[in-house]
Design a protein around this nucleic acid. Structure first.
Length: 427
DNA sequence: TCTGGGGTCCTAGGACCC
DNA sequence: TCTGGGGTCCTAGGACCC
């Protein structure tokens, strides 16, 4: 298996459309221009860490640092193009995240290095994104190989750990800290180290029962994967989401219930769009709002779960529930900094409707309810064709200067998704 | 002044069943 | 000394991922 991912993906997307950024330290900021979520090698060299807040590093602008607001329309579009190109190399591809995909190399002609090199150069030439390729007999080893490909320049972006004897494999991964292993995060790494498991090779050779008893079945599986045994299944198509969330931190704090409801209306609408896009329904919505942990002001975190009676994908029904929920938990006198909604118990529309029918023994005359929601269908079709928010519910109409609106002061143009922003190559 | 936005899986423990 | 022996379902919390 191969794992291909884009280097400093968001920052590389910005560079792809603005080559003058090549060679410069570039970072991409989270929503509200809050903290660094992507860094080029040059930015890492300035000492910027993942998640560093912008206000603590902005002084580096004087040293040439370029910081950009996140432009997810651009990254999503370049991701699709990149995945399409990578998918041409094998009939089996699993898209794992916006910048990573696994590829089944079984039966693909050529050595791992040849294939990896070909993928890298084609993605770079056709999409403009630099990548690294890791290859191994399991997903965890492919991820680890990808890590090695990134950290060891002499590998030139491709690392193949497949077809090695146990001894050679262990030698290859014996210098990789255990914290770099996929599935070992910042809590588990120290606990492993206490047991004397310092490196990926140590974990691969650790006693399975001890791992199972001390940690969980997942850790034991990770160890087997590192030893070359494939335990993590291939996912041919993405599973539908079981929860759908939409939440945002506000540009400025909001104190009044009207402002909160405006924001929550927009988030409810977005969540409902995602729900319908995967042909699902929900039976409960969780609504929340809270003050900022980072401020020395009175703290409050309110939330309420509203059951919806029967499964729905209708924005109007969800909005009514959001409004009720907010009235339940809202308390005046606080500076709310973030709010959101989470659709719970999300299930495929057909299953939800079939269960409903069983539950109530629906007669033929009521079979009409087993249809797609026509109003919502028209809404989604118009917005797909003419652009987001061409048609929306009145309750989510708001002033463009509302306090809760995100700050995005350094946004690049939507080069590939807005006609007005198309790049001019030659005039 | 100023710190993102999503998701998943596993386990333990309690309630309840026969 | 010693208190049956299985189960299921649900939830909260903790860990991980990008």
């Amino acid at each position: 298996m191969a794992l291909i991912d884009g280097n400093s993906f968001y920052a590389s997307c910005e560079r792809a459309l603005r080559p003058a950024l090549n060679g410069k330290p570039v970072i991409v900021l989270s929503n509200n221009d809050g903290c660094a979520i992507a860094r080029t090698a040059e930015a890492k060299a300035l000492g910027i860490r993942m998640g560093d807040p912008w206000f603590k590093i902005r002084h580096l602008e004087s040293e040439g640092l370029v910081a950009l607001s996140a432009n997810f329309a651009l990254y999503g579009d370049l991701s699709e193009r990149m995945m399409h190109v990578i998918g041409q190399f094998s009939p089996r591809q699993e898209i794992y995240s916006i910048d990573e995909s696994f590829l089944d190399l079984t039966g693909v002609p050529g050595t791992g290095r040849e294939i990896g090199t070909a993928i890298r150069s084609r993605v770079l030439q056709w999409v403009g994104i630099p990548t690294c390729v890791g290859i191994g007999p399991s997903k965890t080893l492919a991820k680890l190989a990808n890590h090695l490909a990134k950290s060891l320049p002499r590998l030139e972006g491709v690392c193949d750990l497949s077809g090695l004897s146990h001894e050679r494999l262990m030698r290859a991964i014996r210098h990789v800290p255990v914290a770099e292993v996929w599935g070992v995060g910042r809590r588990l790494a120290p606990r492993l180290q206490e047991l004397g498991i310092q490196t990926a090779a140590d974990l691969a050779c650790a006693d399975a029962r001890v791992l199972r008893d001390t940690f969980s079945i997942v850790m034991a599986k990770t160890a087997r994967e590192l030893a070359g045994e494939s335990c993590i299944a291939w996912e041919d198509s993405p599973a539908p989401k079981k929860q759908i969330m939409c939440s945002r931190s506000f540009g400025s704090p909001v104190g009044d219930i009207g402002g909160l409801m405006e924001a929550l209306s927009v988030y409810t609408g977005r969540a409902a769009e995602k729900l319908r896009a995967q042909a699902s329904m929900t039976t409960a919505i969780h609504v929340f709002a809270r003050t900022s942990f980072f401020r020395q002001t009175p703290q409050y975190s309110g939330s309420a779960v509203m059951p919806l009676g029967e499964p729905t994908d209708d924005t109007r029904v969800l909005l009514a529930a959001t409004r009720q929920a907010l009235r339940k938990f809202f308390r005046p006198g606080f500076a709310y900094a973030k709010a959101g909604v989470c659709l719970l118990d999300v299930q495929p529309r057909l299953e939800a409707q079939a269960q409903q029918q069983l539950a109530f023994d629906v007669q033929d005359s009521e079979a009409d309810s087993r249809q797609v929601n026509k109003a919502m269908c028209v809404l989604d079709c118009l917005n797909t064709r003419y652009g987001r928010d061409t048609v929306k519910l009145a309750s989510s109409v708001h002033d463009e200067t509302a306090a809760w609106q995100m700050r995005q002061e350094r946004m690049s143009p939507s080069y590939t998704t807005r006609w007005e922003d198309l790049v001019e190559v030659w005039r």
